[in-house]
Design a binder for these strands. Structure first.
Length: 823
DNA sequence: TTAGGGTTAG
């Protein structure tokens, strides 16, 4: 290397490294320095005298050319100068290369306090807290020097736990540095960081002098502990003492306004920001974007973002997350593109948002790209958050195999990882897999279940009707003092309701906070499932009396409850109120409920007119509801029309073919049944995996249709054959229109016999003592033939049989069912 | 010459 020839006194190895850096900086300034050194190469000793070292060094530092400055120090032989070397350490700590900072520091023979402080600070500013503390300990035990005011603040910041913090605090007291405003502020912050905000406040109150930094430390202490009221109070106190808020104060307080939903304070602070010219501060703008995003005020968030002169990765992440978290993945994705156009490199949090965007868009192709990008970056190894986000992404797009694979590959799993997978299975209707993962999680003692766990597992248990297991979770919830949590409470209400324990659901409902619509919706839905529309309406009136604002889900539950109970005029009252009073635009689900309501009540013309007048395109559920009504009331013509429209929008759902075939069969039009069968066969039926579950001795047994893998399979089928021949003697005739396969009658009977609820009922009969009631849970709706069979079974076995299907409870007793539906 | 307090998270 040229450089090493220039300065024979310097260590060749170090110089070559430095000069390669030096040469890579091809700025005008470095070129000047290089030329200057070249000229002096012939007789360094003589020429050295002529170099205006100080001027060059100053220019280098001013232009942040730290490597040039470093080279200058080394080639001029001044690297043993504490002042200069410490300056280099500081420069490196500002400009990225902490290892070069250490190298400079390490080769200084006689380090002074300033040098040690600089090195510790370099580590702290790079987040390498353990090394910073190590540096301090070494300084304290080996240097024999006395720390100064500058020593403590970075070291206090580096403390990883309360014990470290207290040790440093003792040392501060022992050496008498506690009244320095910087030292005191860092201690205040340290105590708040470890949750001891009271101790922090005591230190703050004892301070003889406070500057803005001290106030900021105390305010941020409250903010980070979620004490919003105290934070806002003390900000007020600060104002009264004549200390103005700066960018740091504002950036600390804004997230708290968002946290506690105090939009008024947030907006007042925004006004303050504008008035005091803080709106172009990066941290302030970023905090404003985040606050507005949490309030759902995307227009304001975008306005702040648009007015920013300088944006960093946090600004981009914030605006992307703003749209992503307010369910606007398209705009979020657009901002991601703009970020790429601006050549800003995405970081971990960008990818966390992107994973969610991809999931919301159900974009299978890009889900792979996100996964690949994260893998190439090696982030899975280090950060749980992104691993969990990818698991969640796959689960949300229904790719549970990939979700499971990514989950399995995570080196570290936390409770969120487990919750994510459980929720993924549960929300994709795979309740037994969700339960399996939950039980597996129980084998890992280090994973402590939390609110998210209960909220993910309870719907799975209620889905399969596992009352005992659900009750056990209720016990754990009480033990963990989460019984007043509105989300856990709502899941418990739902679980008791869906497991047939309506009374328990109600008493729990009156124990949880009922300020928002969530628990009300669950309870209204419970009444609906149990066929009690009147009670659902009564509860809705109570909700209005308590001034709780209903949402779109409230009305879906309510309308569906009315439709099953035939409460036509009440439903119309609700439907009108939804738009007129609550300004909720009806969605397809609401329209579907209304069509179902008119249809069940026999008002087929009204239902048909309602569809024709819909302001949005009717979907399969709308036509499906009409088709079902046609089946109930035997209207072939309208049924045919409905099915034609239906098959235009969804030609794959096997259930609709069954409905149509049933319409023809009910009026003896067997050629129509045959037509539907061949139509279904030609189009290739999508098989709906139907299952039923039964719980015996705290164990859930799940039966799939046609399932032959159960250990007691033979006994079950034998019992079913016996029972079928018995019920035939008292009038049962199999209804083959529920079988769409074009096979012989024997085979059709066998297919019907394999329906999952029959397997579950037969298993219940052979496994329990006579006359014990049997409870079955089922994911789809009970087919008409199974309904008839169960009515007969309730006669010959003298048992109550309770079947909860996807929409309601059927209580069979003495040959009749409580559901009131026409089969 | 060096220090404290600040924005995004599954």
């Amino acid at each position: 290397m040229k450089g090493s020839r220039l300065v024979p006194n310097c260590k060749r190895r170090h110089l070559s490294k430095l000069f390669s850096f030096f040469q890579s900086h091809r700025t005008l300034h470095t070129a000047t320095v290089t030329d200057y050194l070249q000229v002096t190469s012939d007789d360094l000793e003589n020429e050295r005298k002529g170099i205006d070292f100080n001027a060059l060094f100053k220019s280098c530092t001013k232009l942040q050319q730290v490597k040039c400055a470093h080279t200058l120090v080394v080639v001029s032989g001044r690297f043993k100068d504490n002042f200069l070397s410490s300056k280099i350490v500081n420069l490196y700590s500002q400009h990225g290369d902490v290892s070069l900072a250490w190298w400079t520091f390490h080769h200084l023979p006689n380090k002074d306090v300033y040098t040690w402080n600089s090195m510790a600070f370099a580590y702290v500013s790079h987040g390498r807290f353990r090394e910073a503390l190590g540096c301090f300990n070494q300084f304290f035990s080996t240097s024999g020097l006395r720390p100064d005011f500058y020593t403590f603040p970075p070291v206090v910041k580096a403390c990883g736990d309360l014990l470290d913090g207290k040790k440093i605090h003792c040392l501060v007291l022992k050496l008498g540095f506690e009244w320095d405003v910087f030292v005191a502020a860092s201690l205040v912050h340290m105590y708040s960081r470890f949750g001891l905000v009271g101790d922090a406040r005591k230190l703050f109150d004892d301070m003889p002098a406070r500057d803005r930094g001290s106030w900021n430390a105390m305010i941020s202490g409250y903010c980070q502990n979620g004490n919003a009221a105290e934070a806002l109070d003390i900000a007020d106190e600060m104002r009264l003492e004549g200390v103005k808020m700066d960018a740091i104060t504002v950036a600390s307080v804004l997230p708290v306004c968002a946290q506690v939903g105090d939009i008024l304070s947030g907006k007042l602070i925004h006004l303050y920001v504008i008035k005091h010219g803080l709106e172009f501060e990066l941290f302030v703008s970023n905090a404003l974007i985040n606050m507005y995003a949490k309030f759902g005020s995307l227009g304001h968030a975008q306005k702040v973002f648009g007015q920013m002169v300088v944006r960093d990765i946090v600004s981009w992440n914030s605006i992307i997350a703003a749209y992503e978290q307010n369910n606007n993945p398209v705009s979020a994705h657009l901002f991601f593109h703009k970020m790429q156009e601006a050549r800003v490199q995405p970081d971990l949090l960008t990818l966390v948002s992107l994973a969610s965007i991809v999931a919301q868009l159900n974009d299978h192709q890009n889900s792979r790209s996100v996964h690949g990008f994260v893998m190439r970056k090696g982030w899975f190894m280090e950060y749980i958050i992104i691993g969990n986000a990818v698991v969640d992404m796959y689960a949300k797009i229904g790719n549970l195999d990939s979700a499971r694979a990514v989950f399995g590959g995570l080196l570290i799993k936390d409770v969120v990882s487990w919750n994510t997978l459980i929720t993924g299975y549960a929300q994709n209707g795979l309740a037994s897999e969700a339960i399996e993962v939950y039980l597996l999680m129980g084998e890992h003692e280090e994973i402590i279940p939390n609110q998210g766990t209960w909220v993910s597992i309870l719907p799975a248990y209620s889905h399969v009707g596992a009352l005992q297991q659900g009750m056990r979770i209720h016990g754990q919830v009480i033990k963990n003092c989460l019984y007043s949590d509105v989300f856990v409470g709502t899941c418990l209400i739902d679980m008791y309701g869906k497991c047939g324990k309506l009374d328990d659901a109600i008493s729990l409902f009156y124990q949880v906070p009922r300020k928002n619509s969530v628990p009300w919706n669950a309870m209204i839905s419970c009444y609906g499932v149990h066929g009690d529309g009147e009670k659902a309406l009564e509860l809705f009136r109570e909700m209005r009396a308590e001034r709780v604002k209903p949402d779109h889900i409230t009305f879906v539950s309510l309308l569906s409850a009315c439709s099953h109970s035939g409460l036509v005029s009440d439903a119309q009252w609700c439907f009108n109120m939804m738009e007129e009073e609550y300004r909720i635009t009806p969605s397809l689900k609401h329209y579907g409920c209304m069509i179902d309501l008119f249809g069940r009540a026999g008002e087929l013309e009204m239902a048909f007119n309602f569809i024709k007048n819909m302001p949005i395109q009717p979907d399969a559920s709308a036509w499906g509801a009409l088709l079902n009504a046609c089946r109930i009331h035997g209207n072939i013509e309208l049924g045919k029309h409905a099915s034609e429209r239906l098959f235009e929008v969804d030609s794959e759902n096997v259930g609709y073919y069954v409905l149509l075939s049933n319409i023809y069969a009910n009026v003896g039009k067997w050629e129509g049944v045959d037509d539907v069968r061949s139509l279904a066969r030609d189009r290739g039926l999508r098989k709906n995996p139907g299952w039923s579950s039964i719980i015996l001795n705290n164990k859930v047994d799940v039966f799939y249709t046609g399932n032959q893998t159960h250990p007691k399979c033979e006994e079950i089928y034998r019992e079913l054959r016996d029972l079928t021949s018995k019920i035939k003697t008292i009038g049962y005739v199999p209804d083959f229109c529920f079988v769409l396969q074009d096979v012989e009658e024997d085979e059709k009977e066998h297919i019907l016999m394999g329906h999952s609820e029959r397997l579950a009922i037969a298993y219940g009969i052979i496994s329990t003592s006579p006359k014990t009631p049997i409870r079955i849970f089922k994911n789809l709706r009970v087919c008409g033939d199974c309904h008839t069979v169960t009515e007969f079974l309730s006669i010959i076995t003298e048992r109550e049989i309770i079947v909860r299907d996807s929409s309601r409870f059927h209580h069979f007793k003495g040959g009749t069912c409580s559901c009131g539906d026409y089969w």
